[in-house]
Design a protein around this nucleic acid. Sequence first.
DNA 1: ACTCTTGATAAGAATTATTCTTATTTGCAT
DNA 2: ATGCAAATAAGAATAATTCTTATCAAGAGT
Lengths: 139, 139
Amino acid sequence: MESFGEACRAADLKLTHQRLEIYRELAGASDHPSAEILHKRLQKNMPTLSLDTVYRTLATFEQHHLVKKVETVGSQARFEAQMTQHHHLICDTCKEIMDFQWSSFDVASLPEAIHQWGAIRNKNVTIYGTCRRCQSLKK
Amino acid sequence: MESFGEACRAADLKLTHQRLEIYRELAGASDHPSAEILHKRLQKNMPTLSLDTVYRTLATFEQHHLVKKVETVGSQARFEAQMTQHHHLICDTCKEIMDFQWSSFDVASLPEAIHQWGAIRNKNVTIYGTCRRCQSLKK
DNA sequence: ACTCTTGATAAGAATTATTCTTATTTGCAT
DNA sequence: ATGCAAATAAGAATAATTCTTATCAAGAGT
């Protein structure tokens, strides 16, 4: 990936300390955290960072396609910095979201009828189930 | 489908007027409405129906697998009564959600690695794009 | 049909998640 | 180094959902 600094310059976004740290934290996380969780983690090193800034910054990043909001049935929005094609595994119990690749799906063509609906931009698979950890806890 | 009355009896739920009407309205809707929209529609004929009852009833139905909450990036939860296997087309612009079938996907087997994660319950495709209506409005 | 019990509802208060307002600060072009 | 527009912090405001409490009504047992 190009550097975050370049991406900001390209998008005409000022490169602030907050933006850099929020991006770093999200890019380094693999658990698709909510704004609140990101805020908690970042507060360790940035005690004055406001939750509003986290929300605002994530929204800005989303507009510029630097991060994505993850579809969720829960009440809190969750985010990811992973912008390459991938799919999600979601645990019904702990709500963990894992990424996975499925290239043969990615290249498969859609049912014909879909194209009558409009212009397709992307297709994603979401798999639901119970992760190993939650399976063993249930027994 | 078995009748709603039977489903309630099986789930040990009292068959109230509110529950019946909420279920009917959702089952008859194809637009995956939010609780608020359902409430607005139902108020036409049930002026004293409270929004809380709509939320509470949908949550109860969800627990008993009579309805599903639809995954969404938006702030309002949306619901569907369609419980048979299907997938979603979502318009990036108007947020319309359409159902579609894709049986060859439904029977396809997953990448091997997935099974190490845990027990799979279901797999769904979500397609994003721009619906015909929004395409023509943009020109 | 009548009564009782328990779960369900309406109304509005409370909570949670998110966004807005405003004064201050900071990145960065000049 | 200076100035200006954009970004931030803090807290108020809003939106979505859930909780509390006082009735109310479904359905079990008579």
